[in-house]
């Protein structure tokens, strides 16, 4: 379909979402006085058992919260940042007791690992990368990919952690000579990596060899796309993109997520699904997260909206709570919960 046809076909009906499909499980407040910037869930190992924990990040403090039997959360560890503010948490799958964070002002200047060995609550930070960092992503098999620099002066590097988060191995990938915006792992293909670039290309790497396999130019309708998820099926690549810089159209509002199909052999692509807001909702994409076939976004209106990419429409809308706009939304990696945050440090956990 052309973009226009897809928009018409997938415009959700007014009554097609169910606000009841998000149920509040628990909530807590991070008492930090600085602005809340990110939230994440991860497994943390202590006293011989693994627990699903929550990580919260404010500009000057990152905290680890463990669950109590009463559906409450207890802060057990904090890391403080006085020089450069925290921008985001960078979850690294398959590593226990290790949190990575990106620090910077508008752009990432440092990536640090935050460590805490079992039974020892002393604060430890290790500087992993510094420079003009454009993109970073934690990958399965304890890997972290980052790109430093722009255009021809770009270095794309994979760092592999030991199981305990310690000693690491490094490998370079061939840079694409265009600035990388985001990375995405291809689900089920641990040696494949995608990147989106500032000139609307999706690039594909072989992580084992470091080869740059293909550049795929995607529709110029939306600039600066972010790739949230990718999987390969029947010889085709399916990628879920969001469009934070898309302009609002009068007829369809702002496009939030797009499912794109790519033939990696021919570099041809076609959009198959465009997720827009249900009628009656306004706002643009602020930030979002995709897990399996469910996508969630915070809108500039302060509302969170959820789409089922298989059904092709919005399934839940969560308006601001207690007169406070939402500013963060993340899917938990430890269960099917949605983590929703407000700038003042309130974190709400919903079952979807």
């Amino acid at each position: 379909y052309s973009t226009e046809q897809t928009e018409i076909a997938d415009l959700p009906a007014c009554d097609s979402w169910n606000p009841g499909s998000l149920q509040l499980v628990s909530k807590f407040k991070n008492p930090s006085s600085s602005c809340s910037v990110d939230v994440s869930a991860m497994w943390w190992e202590g006293a011989g058992a693994k627990e699903p924990c929550i990580i919260t990040a404010c500009e000057d403090i990152v905290s680890l919260w463990k669950p109590l039997a009463t559906l409450e959360w207890e802060k057990v560890q904090s890391w403080h940042f006085t020089e450069i503010p925290v921008l985001q948490i960078v979850p690294v799958p398959d590593v226990f007791n290790l949190i990575c964070v990106a620090l910077g002002n508008l752009e990432i200047r440092e990536i640090r690992a935050l460590l805490c060995s079992s039974g020892d609550e002393s604060e430890t930070q290790v500087l992993l990368k510094s420079g003009n960092i454009k993109a970073v992503l934690g990958l399965t098999k304890r890997r972290l990919v980052s790109s430093i620099g722009t255009f021809c002066n770009q270095q794309v590097q994979i760092m592999t952690f030991a199981e305990d988060g310690g000693s690491k191995d490094e490998q370079l990938l061939m840079p694409p000579d265009e600035t990388i915006l985001t990375f995405a792992e291809v689900q089920g293909m641990q040696d494949a990596l995608l990147g989106t670039t500032t000139v609307n290309n999706i690039v594909i790497w072989n992580l084992k060899t470091g080869q740059l396999l293909k550049k795929v130019h995607i529709d110029d309708s939306y600039q600066a796309s972010v790739c949230h998820r990718a999987y390969s099926e029947m010889g085709l690549l399916f990628v879920v993109l969001s469009h934070p810089c898309a302009k609002e159209s009068q007829a369809f509002g702002s496009p939030m997520f797009q499912l794109l199909v790519i033939n990696p052999k021919t570099a041809q692509s076609v959009g198959v699904l465009l997720c827009c807001l249900p009628q009656g909702q306004a706002g643009r994409f602020l930030e979002g997260d995709v897990k399996d076939h469910i996508a969630a976004a915070v809108l500039t209106s302060g509302t969170i909206a959820v789409w089922d990419l298989l059904l092709g429409h919005c399934t839940a809308v969560l308006p601001p709570v207690s007169d406070q706009n939402w500013s963060l939304v993340k899917w938990s990696s430890t269960d099917s919960h949605l983590l929703a945050g407000q700038k003042d440090g309130n974190i709400f956990i919903y079952r979807y």
Partner: peptide
Amino acid sequence: CSTADLGPISLNWFEELSSEAPP
């Protein structure tokens, strides 16, 4: 949409592109 618009498809695209790309 038809996958015919995307050209010939290969189930082994990753291996084939890896053998064609410069090392």
